[in-house]
């Protein structure tokens, strides 16, 4: 039968052995991490972004590399997912993008701070994280299982104009075109039948001026981008009637 002294030996011996193994592995990890995390790309902007991330306890709601709280989205690949322009608009007024839904604190970041945060996210997304976050592996199966809707397919193929960059990255997160996109604002397929060029242009330039209290954010679009968007919207020929 096991004696107390051999039990003690097991405890001391095992603990020492595994502690030393752990230290050796840590040594190796520390030597590999700079390359895996592209440490040479960590410029001052990335470091400042990291500090902003820490100082405001962003991890208290979000996760990054899967670590943090589970109240707000995982942000490791946020630049890839949303694009830089979207993040810029969103951070200026988080609640405007998702009116009536889960809230984020309005931090009133300056342009420079937002740039730093984006640089931090761009650095984070290139870390070799052994395949995290994974691609949704059931997504293709779910899409195959759904009966395809010819009208939706028609709407996209019938669109004469290519979707402007602004539309792809920003507008689509709230509005749907051809059945794809967000549900916060109304679908835009038949917007040409309801509004004129001037109306659309005024609306995009100053949503609050046209309809005070609207959830549509003032995106501070340049004249050129606004023209491009209006042109695109007027050419959407609404639903299935192509």
């Amino acid at each position: 039968m096991l004696s107390k002294s051999s039990a003690r030996l097991f405890f001391i011996g095992g603990t020492t052995f595994f502690s030393l193994t752990f230290l050796a592995l840590t040594w190796d990890t520390v030597s590999q991490v700079p390359e895996r995390s592209n440490a040479h790309e960590m410029n001052e902007s990335v470091t400042r972004g990291h500090d902003i991330w820490n100082d405001n306890n962003c991890m208290g709601c979000h996760t990054i590399l899967g670590e943090g709280a589970y109240y707000a989205p995982e942000l490791t690949k946020v630049v890839e997912r949303r694009g830089e322009p979207w993040i810029r608009v969103f951070l200026k007024d988080p609640q405007a993008m998702f009116p009536g839904r889960r809230k984020m604190v309005q931090y009133n970041f300056t342009e420079d701070q937002i740039t730093d945060l984006i640089e931090f996210f761009k650095w984070i997304q290139n870390i070799d994280a052994n395949g995290f976050p994974p691609e949704p592996d059931l997504a293709p199966k779910v899409q195959n299982a759904m009966v395809s809707d010819p009208s939706v397919a028609g709407a996209t193929s019938g669109t004469a104009h290519v979707m402007p960059e602004m539309m792809k990255t920003i507008c689509i997160s709230c509005h749907a075109v051809g059945g794809k996109g967000g549900k916060v604002g109304p679908a835009l397929d038949d917007v040409a039948q309801r509004y004129s060029r001037t109306e659309l242009d005024r609306w995009l330039a100053d949503p609050q001026g046209v309809k005070p209290g609207t959830g549509m954010p003032d995106l501070k679009l340049s004249d050129e981008v606004r023209r491009e968007l209006v042109e695109y919207l007027l050419n959407l020929n609404g639903g299935g009637n192509q």
Partner: peptide
Amino acid sequence: ILGTGHHYYYIGAPEY
């Protein structure tokens, strides 16, 4: 001690 490894899967530490 080595079980700490389950926190190191997906944070940028080596694959082992």
